[in-house]
Design a protein around this nucleic acid. Structure first.
Lengths: 342, 342
DNA sequence: TTGTATGCGTTATCAT
DNA sequence: ATGATAACGCATACAA
């Protein structure tokens, strides 16, 4: 490995001067600069980033914590992919790299290790669940005033830095849309309540139902796990009480699509025999048959905003105060929720 | 920051002993070990990973190089997502983290910088294109004997380490499948020729056509850019010569689906009025209407294999010799390629 | 404008 | 079984 010293020797200057040249610091004679660059080029010198990180006590990496689930192809989950794309865009703009860490729920105490280890300057946490252990880990991060931020989730009563979407509003819109189309017996297929999104969507559903003077009957509530399969299975249960249901709002697109597939096998087509609305407005919503009405969530922007803010705290010395951002959602109407479209 | 020194002082031992305890090296008295761990816990000490990397000259990170394209939500691309998931699985098993870097084609000379900077111990390169600049950069990496590996692409005549899929075979199978279904006038919608996959698929298409004694007429060849939109646009061109075409093989699912959507607007349904086969067997293939017959590619396994091998070179001192792996593909038959399915 | 000197927190080698 | 100490490659405060 070529070091600064060798460059300094060849150029006939001190090591400090080489550093100055490479960091563009302080005034320097153009000829000296030229000599140094010349020597560096000749030796094929490249500063050692690890040594730089070590000396500067800054890594140039933004940590991204993802939940590890065996057998799950994590990156293929629409919202993770979109959030990561947004983070990627932002870190690129700031010359940072992304350090991805996959943590199981049991590893989660390791948030601290991530920072302590100095491998990252700031971090963004995705897909953590609301459990006592998680809350404790996050609380500790908070207490140590480390620059971190949650994306697409909210821990009630904790004042953590978060960039979330207004899932209550989105769900409310979705259900209202169904009501305006004339449906009254609207079921709700939710995901695991460990995610704040699920609770928010339930809240939005209830709110819209109540506002319309409709009862939230327990038999209208279904629960899956956000997989297509669980939506498919929900179709069976729903089928048993098909006379009581005119429409379904599902907490994500995958479940909505699984549901539609399950119903189709029984002869029911969404948009004709019942109305279906999903959440995420993923690519799948555009491709499904019929195209799925869905609540669009600005995941990309959320990832980008989260990265911008935590890096801002590090680089521009922005306030370390926790922040809460909540971006609006939007309803994209397609055929699955229209009456008699075919 | 709590350092080893403070722990040593509190435990009444030397710094070296603290290191030994934390690295589990050499023999040591259990009581000493206990005292050190106790002190560390009390002070909330965590070894500084940057300092460790610096001293060990090893980062514990696997670099992943991705192409940066403005406005493209990179991680949402099915095959990147799958490959990344596979890499993620493997690095987790080895206790490594993934360092993601987004490079534009112009940045590509920076492959070297990645290693020189010591931020990564090995790296995996995704989505690079076959251009003179790329070849030169990769050549240099090769010359420096740095442990790296390409995934899902092949640079003819270079003997680089690669984990690829047998796209020639996959395409050949797809076209044969169409031929066996009785189609003879089979069009091919390819993506950009800058990707080796595209060339491989063309080769497979031609091979199957020739084997069947069919002519590869230029008017049967279409080119898109792997986006759904480009498939949609291809539908218009294809429509003009609809009397000459019975079936279409598309180089990825997105284009195949765009094509089907474009044709449907003109009244043609895949699986009824013509047959369509895609590539990747992405989620979209299962969701589309009709479900899309597609060539399944083991992206996840490819990512995992690539990570395993480059990390093996680093950790287990495996041979640094370049390796070429080519995994088989599989044809998944669904309704889009069946005749008169509805 | 440039050089000198110190420190960053480890690992690893050599003593004891 | 444990301690002392020299690297590791750079940033940076201070001196010249």
């Amino acid at each position: 490995m070529v070091t600064r010293k060798e460059v300094a020797d060849l150029a006939g200057v001190s090591e400090a001067t080489v550093s100055r040249v490479f960091n563009g610091l302080g005034p320097m004679k153009p000829t000296t600069k030229e000599r140094v660059l010349q020597a560096a080029k000749q030796l094929n010198y490249h500063p050692n980033a690890i040594a730089q990180s070590f000396a500067r006590r800054r890594s140039g990496n933004l940590g991204v914590v993802l939940p590890y689930m065996p057998k799950v192809h994590l990156f293929s989950t629409y919202y993770f992919a979109e959030i990561l794309s947004g983070i990627g865009e932002q870190v690129r703009e700031q010359g940072y790299d992304m350090l991805l860490t996959l943590l199981t729920p049991e590893d989660s105490a390791d948030y601290i290790r991530l920072f302590r280890s100095q491998k990252v300057d700031a971090c963004v946490i995705l897909g953590s669940r609301d459990t006592p252990g998680q809350r404790e880990s996050l609380q500790r991060l908070q207490e140590e005033k480390l620059p971190f931020c949650l994306v697409n989730q909210h821990f009630a009563g904790m004042e953590l830095s978060e960039v979330d979407a207004d899932h209550v509003q989105g769900s409310c819109m979705a259900v209202r849309h169904l009501q305006e189309a004339g449906y009254r017996r609207i079921a709700f297929l939710n995901g695991s309540p460990e995610y704040s999104n699920s609770m928010d969507r339930l809240k939005g559903y209830c709110q819209a139902m109540n506002d319309a003077g409709l009862e939230v009957s327990p038999q209208l509530l279904f629960e899956g796990n956000y997989s297509r399969k669980s939506g498919y299975e929900a179709a069976a249960k729903l089928w048993e009480q098909r006379d009581e249901v005119e429409a379904v709002f599902a907490a994500n697109d995958r479940m909505a699509i699984g549901l539609m597939q399950g119903l189709r096998e029984r002869g029911w087509t969404a948009g004709r025999d019942l109305a279906v609305v999903g959440c995420d407005d993923s690519d799948a919503a555009k491709l499904s048959d019929p195209p799925l009405t869905s609540v669009s969530v600005p995941f990309y922007e959320m990832g980008k905003a989260a990265a911008r803010r935590v890096l801002g705290q590090v680089l521009d010395g922005e306030s370390g105060k926790s922040f809460q951002v909540k971006l609006p959602t939007q309803l994209i109407v397609r055929q699955s929720s229209l009456r008699n479209h075919e």
